[in-house]
Design a protein around this nucleic acid. Structure first.
Lengths: 335, 335
DNA sequence: GTGAAAGCGCTAACAC
DNA sequence: GTGTTAGCGCTTTCAC
C-alpha cells in the first residue's frame, strides 16, 4: 500500500537494518550513509508504520487519556495543558471516556486500550472506582490527577487548603451563616470531595463557626445541579448570607437561581466558587483558582519522562490554589 | 509479554486461524467450537494485539480527530457528541491538535497520524488551510465540520440563515444602529466567517438598513477579544444600540466590558451571541443555538458508517439553528 | 559500521 | 468447518 523500509533500502542501496538505524538516528551509522538514507526516505515520501514498529518493539508510541467525562470545563483546560505538552513529543494521544461507571462494559475497555498505549493519564476518577483498580492492575505507568496515596505519579491540588481559603474569605467579610453546595457525597477518604469537606470544616472550626447541616446541599457538579441547590438554600427559613460552591459550574447555576429570585450576588447573597474558570471573570464571580492547564501539562510531563527513562519512581506534585476576589463577595449581605 | 492467539489455540486444541475466526464471530465457525474458544480466551485473559491486527489487515481500528484548538466551548461539545457516538463502536479516538498553523511542523504530522487511523474527523479548519489540503490528499475517509464543497462528507450549520436570524431579531426589536463583533477576517468564500457576514448583510438589506463600517469589529473568537471589541464599539461617537457577536464567547467578553462601563445588557445595549452554550443561559444572553453535540455525533456516525461499509459517497448534512431569546435583547435601548 | 535472518502476533489464502 | 502456510513492515540479534 505504501512505501516501506524495503523500498528505501533498495533505492538507497543499503540493508533494511541500516535504514531502520539511520532513520532513528543511531550513532553507529556512518554519517554519510545516514544522510543518504534520510534523503532517499524523504524523496520517497516514506512514513514508517507505527503498527509494525509497535509489534516489534512492544512500544505503542501513544498514551491513553482516561476521563469519566468530557463536558466539564476543568477537563477542557487540563486537556489543553496535556495537549500542548505532548505536542513536542512524538507520542499520540488516545482519548477514552469511561462515562457512567454504572454502565456495563462488554469488554473491559482498559485491557484493550492498554495494548494500544504505553501509559495512562487518568483524570479524576473516584478512588473507589473499579475502573481505577483495573488500570492500576495493568502495571503500566500511570500519571494521575488527584492522588490516592503514592502508588502512582500524581498531580494534585491542595483542595483542603483551597476550601479553607474560601471559607476564611467569607468569614473575613463578616459572614456567620454559610451555605455550602458540594458536588457529590464523599464515599471514602482521600478523594477530592473529602478534602474539600475537611477544609471547610477546619476553617469553620478555626472561626468558631457551626455549620448548619440544612445549608449543606449537593449540586452534582453541574450548572443545573447548582441552580437546584441554591433553590433549596433560599427556600429555608433562615437562608445563608454567603454560599461556597465546590465548583464554578455549580456557582453559575446558583447565580442563575439568584437572578430568577431577583437577588444579586455580592449585594443580597455573597457567592464564591471553586476552579477559577475564565468565565468566572466575566460573571464577576469570586473563586478559588486552580491551575488546570498546568495540572494537565505536569501530568503529561510526568508520564512522558517516565516512559522515556523508566525509573519506577512516583512523582507527587501538589499545585497551589489562588483566591480571586471579585464582585460576588463584598460582605454587603453579612450580618 | 502477554498471552497470544497461539496460547489460546494450544489450550483450546484448535489452530490459530480458528481462534482468530471464532474471536471475530465468523459464521463459518462451528458454534460449539466458537463457544469453547471464547471460553478459553476468557479464562486465559486473552486480549488481542491491535498492532498485529493492524499490520495484517491494514486497518488501524481508530479514527483521528483533528482540530485547530482544544480550548473552545464548541470543541468540547462536539467532542462530547463524537465520544458518545464512538462509545458503541470498537474504534479508538486519536486526538490531534494542529494548533497555530504558522508553527513549523518538523514532520508533517498528518502523514504520521494517517498510518495510525482509518479515517479523520476534521473540525473547523479554514478552507485555505494547508493542513486541510494535506489531509484530503491522503485519500482517506474524512468527515468534516463546515463544508467547503462536497469533496468530503460534512456536517454544517446554516450559518447564513443563523446570522440573518440574529439580525432580524434585533431589527424586530426596533434597533437600527447595529454593532457587529466578528471573529476573524473571512479569507475566502465558503467558510463559516464568510457565510456569517453574508447572512448579516442579507438581513440588513432586507431591513433596508445600512451597517456602519465603524461598528464592525473583530473579536478573534475569544472572550478577551470580545471585550476589546466592545470597548471599541462603546468608544465611538455614536455607539450601537444593539450588538451581534459571532460567538457566545466573544459576547461574554462584551458583557464584561459593559459591566465595567456600568452598562446592563438588555437595558442599555442589547446583545446577542452565536453558539448557544449552556453558559449563555446562566448569563441571560440571547443567542443563536447550534447543536454542537449533534454535530459531533453526526460527524462520528458518518465516518463510522463509511469505514464499516465504504461507499465513497459523501454525505452532506446541514443542521438547523435556533434563536434563544433571553434578557439581553429586550429592545429597551432601541431608538 | 553494516547485512542476513529471525521473528513480533495476527489474518488471509488456500487446501483439505 | 478447520488447519497450514505465508506474509504484513518493522526491529534486532548476531555475524562479519
Amino acid at each position: 500500500m505504501g512505501v516501506t523500509v524495503k523500498d528505501v533500502a533498495r533505492v538507497a542501496g543499503v540493508s533494511t537494518a541500516t535504514v531502520s538505524r539511520a532513520l532513528r538516528g543511531f550513532e553507529s551509522v556512518d554519517p554519510a550513509v545516514r544522510a543518504h538514507v534520510l534523503d532517499v526516505a524523504q524523496r520517497l515520501d516514506y512514513v514508517g508504520s507505527p503498527a509494525a514498529a509497535a509489534l516489534t518493539t512492544g512500544k505503542a508510541g501513544s498514551v491513553g487519556l482516561i476521563t469519566p467525562f468530557v463536558d466539564r470545563l476543568g477537563f477542557q483546560r487540563m486537556l489543553a495543558g496535556i495537549e500542548s505538552e505532548m505536542r513536542g513529543s512524538s507520542m499520540d494521544l488516545l482519548l477514552h471516556c469511561t462515562g457512567d461507571p454504572s454502565e456495563p462494559h462488554p469488554v473491559p475497555p482498559h485491557k484493550r486500550l492498554a495494548r494500544r498505549v504505553d501509559g495512562f493519564i487518568v483524570l479524576s476518577i473516584s478512588a473507589d472506582s473499579r475502573d481505577l483498580e483495573q488500570i492500576l492492575r495493568l502495571g503500566m505507568p500511570v500519571s494521575m490527577f488527584g492522588s490516592r496515596g503514592a502508588d502512582t505519579s500524581s498531580v494534585r491540588v491542595d483542595d483542603r487548603a483551597g476550601a479553607s481559603r474560601a471559607i476564611d474569605h467569607l468569614v473575613d467579610l463578616g459572614h456567620r451563616r454559610l451555605g455550602i453546595i458540594y458536588g457529590r457525597e464523599a464515599v471514602d477518604a482521600g478523594v477530592l470531595e473529602h478534602e474539600m469537606h475537611v477544609g471547610v470544616r477546619d476553617a469553620a472550626e478555626r472561626a468558631r463557626l457551626t455549620l448548619d447541616q440544612d445549608l449543606i446541599v449537593a449540586g452534582d457538579y453541574t450548572t443545573s445541579g447548582g441552580a437546584l441547590a441554591m433553590e433549596q438554600l433560599l427556600a429555608g427559613d433562615d437562608p445563608p448570607t454567603a454560599v461556597f460552591a465546590f465548583s464554578d459550574e455549580m456557582a453559575y447555576g446558583a447565580m442563575r437561581t439568584m437572578r430568577e429570585h431577583g437577588l444579586v450576588p455580592g449585594r443580597d447573597v455573597d457567592l464564591i466558587g471553586y476552579d477559577g474558570h475564565p468565565m468566572s471573570d466575566v460573571l464577576d464571580l469570586s473563586t478559588i483558582e486552580l491551575p488546570f492547564e498546568e495540572i494537565g501539562s505536569t501530568l503529561a510531563r510526568n508520564l512522558l519522562d517516565e516512559l522515556q527513562a523508566p525509573t519506577g519512581a512516583h512523582r507527587v506534585v501538589t499545585l497551589p490554589t489562588r483566591l480571586a476576589v471579585r464582585g460576588s463577595t463584598t460582605g454587603a449581605s453579612a450580618r
